[in-house]
Amino acid sequence: MSGIDRRQFLARALTAGGAFLLGGCDRLSQSVWFPKVLDSAEFLNRTVQRALTPRDALATEFPESYISPVFRPNGSTDPQNPAYRALAAGGFRDYRLEVRGLVEHPMSLSLDELRALPSRTQITRHDCVEGWSVIGKWKGARLSALLDRVQPLPAARYVMFHCADTLGSSDARYYESIDMLDAYHPQTILAYELNDRTVPIENGAPLRVRIERQLGYKMAKYIMAIELVESFVDIKGGKGGYWEDRGYEWYAGI
């Protein structure tokens, strides 16, 4: 082969090889079996990350000077469902958080009752799965305190958050779930204040959960009900959350 031929051959081989590889990757992404192989990384991320860190290790907290000028809202920013609109119009005076499922004492709490629970204030960084970060100051009821009131049954393994919002054109309600390890973490709070004011609608009024060791999509906004469950495989898409049902990891620690 002459030099030119060889160069042409190489260039073509590289282009064809590249297209073949990328086309192959796309076909693998569409397959049923290959994403399941890739999913083993989520198991490794969860088990190894948790093994390497103390159970109650705290996410970094920042001084006031770090607070972002705007806490960028993402996902739903103005839920349209009529029941929520009515609550919002009344300044959430009629709001009740329902706590149900595998608990000894199911209950329903007003915002005043939630404010009366032991609280925590924290200035933390919010990391979106898209890659950006903002810092805000959150105040809310400790989820652990609420769980102590309702007394989870021994079978309860997950805390599920049911929300008022739908996303995009779908009519599927947002929902999320965490396990007991994150539910009892000291920084896991049901936040009713952002930057010393009641949480604005675009950030999840009247109540959004903060799970500081995971990504933003875990931190459900517009929470209407909390349900304790043994398993989430039979609930909605079966993956434990709105974005999880659409391919994102249930464990969002990275």
């Binding site: 796309d26 890739l38 083993s40 990384a41 799965v129 898209e130 974005w243 391919g247 994102y248």
Partner: peptide, 23 residues
């Protein structure tokens, strides 16, 4: 598209590829 895996916009799938091959 010719520089991304997967080609079309698909963050969730890209993260799966990325973390698996990161390990």
């Amino acid at each position: 598209t010719w520089l991304t895996i997967p080609g079309p916009r698909w963050l969730a799938m890209a993260r799966r590829w990325h973390f698996f091959f990161a390990w």
